[in-house]
């Protein structure tokens, strides 16, 4: 019943033998121990398990690993690697979340950061509405979302400056 599945995870080509009906979140957390991806509801409502697949956000609790064949999967762990390559400690979105006070309990944070990344990778200057929409699939019970929206605005500035340099 196990099958060979090839995909790209955080920039690295992977080839695994696994049950194709396994949920992506279980592969990430239980098998690969990438625990930055959180499970908050198991039914795609809360967005804590958000990952990026080929540039688009997905709830990894609803994705089966058969669906990631030959695709690029990005988890929160990729952002630090990306930053390190540039000689930074953190990705500008992560830094913006800290600077804007967008983090409280932190459980929704990795998913929020990835939703922000998916937005900013496509749209470097989103307006307020586009920012709100980009995180509307990510629930947060602590912040009331205001500082998260602010963080994404700040991140857009940071990333533009980064691009110029």
């Amino acid at each position: 019943m196990n099958e060979q599945i090839r995909f790209n995870l955080n920039g690295k080509d992977m080839e695994i033998q696994a049950d194709p009906s396994m949920r992506l979140i279980d592969l990430l957390r239980d098998e690969l121990r990438l625990t930055g991806t959180k499970e908050g509801c198991g039914e795609g409502e809360c967005g804590a398990c958000t990952v990026i697949i080929d540039g688009i956000t997905a709830n990894s609790c609803l994705v089966l690993i058969s669906q990631i064949r030959d695709k690029k999967v990005t988890t929160i762990e990729a952002l630090e690697q990306e930053a390190l390559k540039k000689g930074d400690e953190l990705h500008p979105i992560q830094q913006a979340f800290i600077d804007a006070g967008a983090v409280q309990c932190g459980f929704c944070t990795p998913g929020m950061v990835l939703s922000a990344k998916a937005l900013l990778d496509h749209n470097s200057s989103p307006d307020e509405n586009e920012i709100k929409r980009s995180i509307s699939g990510n629930l947060c019970r602590c912040t009331g979302y205001k500082k998260i929206e602010k963080a994404i605005q700040i991140a857009s500035d940071y990333m533009k400056k980064d691009g110029v340099e």
């Binding site: 930055g36 630090e80 979340f97 983090v103 944070t109």
Partner: peptide, 17 residues
């Protein structure tokens, strides 16, 4: 800035699960 924020934005903060 929050002392616990860096661990949380990187996904390194350890929740019990």
């Amino acid at each position: 800035l929050r002392i616990d924020a860096k661990d949380k934005v990187t996904g390194k903060a350890v929740y019990p699960s």
